Simulated assay, not measured.
Amino acid sequence: MVLLIDWGNTRLKWMKIDHLELAQVRAAKVNITDNWQEHTEIWASPIEAIFIASVRNDQDNQALSGHLLNYCDRIHFAKTEQIACGVENSYSDPETMGVDRWMGVIAAAAPEENIAVVSIGSAITLDVIQSAQHMGGHIVPGRRLMLESLNTTGRVRPLMNTQDDESFHLGQTTNDCVNAGINSMIEGYLRHIINQTKIEYQVSRFIFAGGGGKYWQQRLNSGTDQMEYSESLVFEGLVKRYSV
């Protein structure tokens, strides 16, 4: 049994598979937890190897690794590299690129195809891949970071559990105004990068990922562009990287 872990800024996602095969990842259940220490079922069965993509700090990673060593001594933390699986990174200093983004790039890259990966979580990231070349990307604040930023002013205090809203409207409370404004900002940005990457980089396929990926993929998909949502994109990157 192999354990795959994707530890982001807010949640830890994990899955178990029998072998490092993409078909198994795509068929497996993605589990999500806010506190991995409370979910002992993760380690309930024997584990042969553990592969981790984590954007957490060293202290968090060491705590997780120390706990995992009680169950398995083959623990691999993925790193962002200059070249992996035939994909070349555009960063001159690859280690400064989040490993979750890099795993997504590896997973999405396909010969003779121009693809954009749009991950929507605490931050919104864009990565464009032309065949096996990572061309670069964007990082902008996501919903939670925008809300936190407004809260730090001490003047505007929106509810932190504000949700996406499909309709355009003008708010009549501070919270509604913030919600409507953030939705419009995110939608405007996403529509802009979709249009521009098609023009500038001939992108023909868009892969959405992250906690907000499914919502925005469904909202923006007019049927004229090839848009898909992947819940397991980082896991697919781990499998491609370590099954080589």
Rank of each mutant, 00 (worst) to 15 (best):
L190F: 06
T153S: 15
Y91F: 15
I182E: 00
I42F: 02
N35S: 14
Q217D: 07
I199K: 13
F235M: 06
Q59L: 13
A63R: 11
M97S: 03
E166D: 15
D60E: 15
E112L: 11
T197R: 02
L69C: 11
V2Q: 06
R56C: 06
S45K: 03
I32K: 01
D60P: 07
S65C: 10
K13M: 09
R205H: 15
D127Y: 07
A53M: 04
V128W: 01
L159P: 06
N195C: 04
C85D: 05
S204W: 00
C85F: 10
A78C: 11
S54P: 05
D73C: 06
S184A: 15
H39I: 07
S90Q: 06
I199Y: 11
P158H: 12
D164M: 06
V117H: 01
A110D: 12
K13R: 13
N35E: 11
E166T: 14
S149Y: 07
L3P: 06
S230P: 00
G86H: 05
T153C: 09
V25R: 01
T153G: 10
A110L: 07
E187Q: 13
A123R: 00
S45V: 05
Q130V: 13
H67R: 11
A27P: 02
I120P: 02
K13N: 08
T125S: 00
E48M: 05
M227D: 05
I139H: 03
D225M: 05
K198H: 11
H192M: 11
K13L: 05
S92E: 08
D165M: 09
G213F: 09
I75P: 03
L170N: 12
Q163A: 15
R219L: 15
E231D: 15
I83G: 09
H76M: 13
E113H: 12
L3D: 09
R74P: 01
I193M: 03
R241M: 08
A109W: 00
F208W: 07
A63Q: 14
G66Q: 09
W36M: 08
D164W: 08
A132E: 06
G142M: 04
G188Q: 07
R219P: 05
H67V: 10
G8R: 03
L150A: 09
E200Y: 13
E38G: 05
P46H: 05
V244Y: 05
L147T: 01
R155A: 15
L150E: 01
V140F: 05
T174H: 01
V30M: 02
Q62T: 14
M160F: 14
G136I: 15
V55E: 13
E228F: 03
W14L: 12
E88V: 11
